[in-house]
Amino acid sequence: MRLLSNLFIPVLVLIVIIYGARKKIDVYDSFIEGAKEGLPMVLNMFPPLLAMIFGINIFTNSGLIDEVFRFLKPIFYLINVPLEILPIAVMRPLSGSFGLALLNDMYTLHGADNYLSILASIIQGSSDTTLYIITLYFGTIGIKKIKYALWAGLLADLMTVILSLFIVPLFF
C-alpha cells in the first residue's frame, strides 16, 4: 500500500507530461500558466482562513470544552460511551491539528495499542476537519451562503463517531 502511495505522484506526473508532449501542446508554458493561478488562490484563501483560525484558537485554548465535558461525564457513563473519546469526537471537525494533539496525548497517557487510543485513532482517521474544509473551499471561491453544508458535514462526522463505537469492538 505504501509503495503504491509512493509511486502514485511520480507516475501521475509522468503520465500528464508524456501525454501532453504526445498531443504536441507547449507543456512548459502550460505548467507556468497553471502555477500562476496559485498566488491569487492563496490570496483569496488567506482572509477566511485567518478568521476561522482566530476564532477556533480562542475557543479551543479557553478550556471551556473541558469544563463542559466534566459536566457531561455522568450522562455519558449512563449510556456506556467512554468519555475519554469525547474531546476528539467534538474537536475533530473543528481543528485538525488540535485533534492530532489530543490523539498524541491519549497515546502518551494510555499507550498507542490501548482500546481507547485505537477508538480515538479510528475516529480521527475516518473523518476530516469539516470546518476547515468549508472555510477553505467556500472561502476561496467566495461563497457566502453555505445553506445546509455545515449541518450535512457535521452530521456525517457524528455518523463516523457512532459507527466507530459499533465497528471498533468487532476488531479489537
Binding site: 506526473v13 500528464v16 502555477a35 493561478e37
Partner: peptide, 24 residues
Amino acid sequence: LIIQIFPLLAIWLGIMNIAKKSGL
C-alpha cells in the same frame, strides 16, 4: 499554514493545467 499550502498548490496547478490543455 498558507506557506505550507502555497508551493504545493502552485506545482499541482501547473501539472493540472498541462492535463487540461492536453485533453487528458
